[in-house]
Amino acid sequence: MFRGKLNAYRSISLLALLAGFLLMYGAIVSKGLPLLAGGLMVAGFLFVIGSGLSYFLIGALSMRAVRVICPTCGRETKMLGMHDRCLSCGQRLTLDPRFREEGKKE
């Protein structure tokens, strides 16, 4: 479903943002019940703030990610950790020399 760890984190943050908007919309719809509307508004606000913070952290992670050239598509991509996927084509990438040598043997 996701191509690369960075895209997975970004997608989760986007879903949290949308959930926050839906909760706040639910608060507007349920304005006849003030306690429920207030709770939904606060929960939605917290989801939106949390999503913003996670986008900030993803940006910080992205700045320290290792840039590599994908052997399949030839594009530059970013890797988090020792194993990741290309952000463009989804090719599995590794920085571990043991796995690179095993791939050459096959």
Rank of each mutant, 00 (worst) to 15 (best):
M1Q: 08
M1Y: 01
M1T: 08
F2S: 15
F2N: 15
R3K: 15
G4H: 10
K5A: 12
K5N: 07
L6H: 05
L6E: 07
N7L: 11
N7M: 08
A8P: 01
Y9C: 06
Y9P: 00
R10G: 10
R10V: 02
R10Y: 02
I12N: 09
S13P: 14
S13E: 04
L14S: 13
L15R: 09
L15M: 14
A16P: 04
A16N: 11
A16C: 09
A16Y: 00
L17N: 08
L18R: 03
A19R: 10
A19P: 01
A19K: 06
G20V: 09
F21W: 03
L22F: 14
L22T: 12
L22Q: 07
L23G: 02
L23F: 12
M24Q: 15
M24P: 12
M24K: 15
Y25G: 03
G26D: 13
I28C: 01
I28F: 12
S30E: 13
K31T: 08
K31S: 14
L33P: 00
L33M: 10
P34T: 07
P34Y: 02
A37M: 06
G38R: 04
G38M: 10
G39Q: 04
L40V: 03
M41N: 13
V42M: 14
G44Y: 05
G44V: 06
F47H: 12
F47R: 00
F47S: 11
F47A: 14
F47E: 06
I49W: 04
G50F: 08
G50C: 07
G50P: 13
S51M: 07
G52M: 11
G52D: 00
L53M: 14
S54L: 10
Y55Q: 11
Y55M: 09
F56A: 08
L57K: 12
L57A: 13
G59D: 05
G59T: 04
A60E: 12
A60G: 07
L61C: 06
S62L: 04
M63Y: 06
M63R: 15
A65V: 09
A65M: 06
V66P: 08
V66N: 10
V66F: 11
V68S: 11
V68F: 08
I69C: 05
C70Y: 07
C70E: 14
P71K: 09
P71N: 09
T72D: 11
T72L: 03
C73A: 12
C73V: 11
C73W: 05
G74L: 05
G74S: 02
G74F: 00
G74D: 03
G74N: 03
R75V: 05
R75I: 02
R75P: 00
K78E: 04
K78V: 01
K78C: 03
M79P: 10
M79V: 05
L80R: 04
L80I: 14
L80M: 13
G81P: 00
G81I: 07
M82Y: 07
M82E: 13
D84E: 01
D84G: 02
R85I: 00
R85Q: 15
R85T: 01
C86T: 06
L87T: 07
S88W: 12
G90F: 02
G90Y: 05
G90D: 03
Q91K: 09
R92E: 13
R92M: 08
L93F: 02
T94V: 04
L95C: 02
L95K: 14
D96L: 03
R98H: 08
R98K: 13
F99V: 03
R100S: 05
R100N: 04
E101M: 10
E101A: 14
E102S: 03
E102F: 04
K104A: 13
K105C: 02
K105I: 02
E106Y: 01
